[in-house]
């Protein structure tokens, strides 16, 4: 889902992470984010990726990467293996998003999760006016060929965290590229933000 991964997104993630952290990027693609964090925050990074071509790109960048699947292979990591795990725009493509989130906060102290927000007003309007599944720059697949299985809204995500052992620590606004302490659910975020990004940990 490289469409989302602008330098500004990377910078927000970078601001959430202290220098020298141990990090796993799940669904790390060609390793651009890990490379960025290595250069800017001197992290010790690992990747998990399913696509072999992208794995080879990671290796050529000197990034340690495991071929694997977020739904299956996170069980192989012991508790607290990392300081931070990162899951950018991959949650909606997993088979079991709830279990994946629980694994994230098990294998790392904190996790950064971002996803497309289906509560965004343009998506709502599109469905209301056209009556078709949304296809936009961020969601460029037709419904019949999308790899995405579980779309949610920011409100859905927050409610899921509340129903599990997950605490939301910070929320990021990827429009203004800002980070705020999370206090309570905001209807405005759910309506006006195209994507959600949160820093979470185990309750």
């Amino acid at each position: 889902m490289s469409l989302f991964n602008t330098d500004k997104d990377f910078n927000v993630i970078s601001n959430l992470i202290p220098s020298g952290s141990n990090i796993i990027d799940i669904g790390c693609g060609d390793g651009s984010l890990l490379d960025y964090l290595d250069k800017n925050k001197n992290i010790n990074g690992r990747g998990l990726e399913i696509d072999q071509d992208k794995i080879r790109e990671c290796l050529a960048k000197g990034i340690s990467v495991m071929q694997g699947d977020a739904d299956i292979d996170l069980v192989d990591y012991p508790d607290k293996s990392f300081d931070y795990s990162i899951l950018t725009y991959t949650l909606q493509a997993t088979k079991k998003p709830k279990e994946v989130l629980e694994e994230l906060v098990r294998i790392s102290d904190k996790a950064i999760v971002s996803f497309p927000n289906f509560g965004y007003w343009k998506i709502r309007l599109n469905l209301l006016l056209n009556g078709t599944m949304p296809v936009s720059n961020n969601l460029s697949y037709s419904w019949y060929e999308t790899p995405n299985l579980h779309f949610c809204t920011i409100t859905d995500f927050i409610e899921l965290c509340g129903a599990t052992n997950i605490k939301i620590e910070k929320k990021c606004n990827l429009k203004k590229y800002s980070i705020q302490e999370y206090t309570k659910k905001s209807k405005f975020d759910n309506f006006f933000l195209e994507s959600g990004m949160f820093l979470i940990s185990k309750k």
């Binding site: 990467v65 495991m66 192989d76």
Partner: peptide, 21 residues
């Protein structure tokens, strides 16, 4: 082979793994 990578992971080594199709 994954038994080996799993062990390396548990030790926090810089391990990469590829299954060639």
């Amino acid at each position: 082979n994954k038994v080996i990578t799993k062990t390396f992971n548990a030790l926090g080594l810089n391990v990469s793994f590829v299954e060639i199709d």
